[in-house]
Design a protein around this nucleic acid. Structure first.
Lengths: 152, 152
DNA sequence: GAAAACCCGACATAAATGGTCGTATACTGA
DNA sequence: TCAGTATACGACCATTTATGTCGGGTTTTC
């Protein structure tokens, strides 16, 4: 159904939350989980994943927790999703692997691979910062920096 | 993981196959299934779904089978996927339903809804015809008719 | 050294997906 | 009119994937 997993959702929400509280040096997994009513242990694992992928910095001990490893503007939704759910492909069989077993099936994949690239491009153009300031008006005033053109 | 289900894949493949054989008045589910090595009964159900949604026309009896209800150019990948997998949303909680239960969660969904629209737009711009003529060179000669511009 | 945190693998449960079976119904042509 | 071909549809099962939990271990601070 082409939807994000809850884990990815949680991850994005957590990063957004961190971006919204820059005054705190670090927030614990529990803090964030409580703020959103997310299962704490599950979120913990997700944050650990994000840490391993270099999107977060962790610190143990009292008053420890997690903080963004980079500026919120420099972390894309794509990175988050990729870190949590792994590489995604819109088609089940993509070149690279030895899928599409015997049958000469999937003559479909080629055009859809471009769709895939497009989606990836869009997600890369969205930063955590964008998520944090979600009250922005529908019309962007200055420049279409996030503009993506695709010809398929 | 943001990927198409096999059913949707099968559906697209089948429509593509039908588009490639306009000389036949109709092809049976079995014909298509055999051509690609897809489980016949499963494909049958998929084609029935597509028929119910008006993308195919079916005909029982000998020499019966399925045929495109419209020109291959007039059927979008979006319609196919939508018919098979139902409406998709990139976020688990989307406005409309009473999701996002109690918690004030998902402040995420608003920006991602635009991603969703983008993806839908791209899929709508791809026709079965496009899939059928997948041997097209990478560079489109005349005009960017399938161009989609998005500013997020 | 106790408390607060992160770290991590194993497990349990739940839901979606993929696929099968059986049967009913519709159409065709000999 | 009957046999064969095909769609239509619902129920069911198997497998995988997603979600969530548990328990023990390590780091850091006070």
């Amino acid at each position: 159904m082409l939807k994000l997993t809850k884990k990815a959702d949680y991850g994005l929400m957590a990063l957004k939350y961190l971006a919204e509280h820059p005054e705190k040096a670090a927030l614990s997994a529990k803090d964030v989980a409580d703020a959103y009513g997310i299962p704490a242990q599950l979120l913990a694992k997700i944050l650990q994943l994000l840490t391993k992928h270099g999107l977060l910095r962790s610190h143990a001990g009292m008053n420890g927790g997690y903080a963004l490893a980079r500026d919120a503007r420099e972390i894309s939704a794509y990175e988050v999703i990729h870190a949590i759910d792994g590489p995604f492909f819109i088609t089940s069989c993509t070149k690279g692997a030895k899928n599409c077993d015997l049958t000469p099936s999937c003559t479909i994949k080629e055009p859809l691979a471009r769709v895939n690239d497009t989606i990836a491009g869009v997600l890369k153009s969205i930063s955590i910062q964008d998520l944090a300031e979600h009250e922005q008006p529908a019309h962007r005033p200055h420049a279409p920096q996030g503009l993506v053109a695709l010809t398929l």
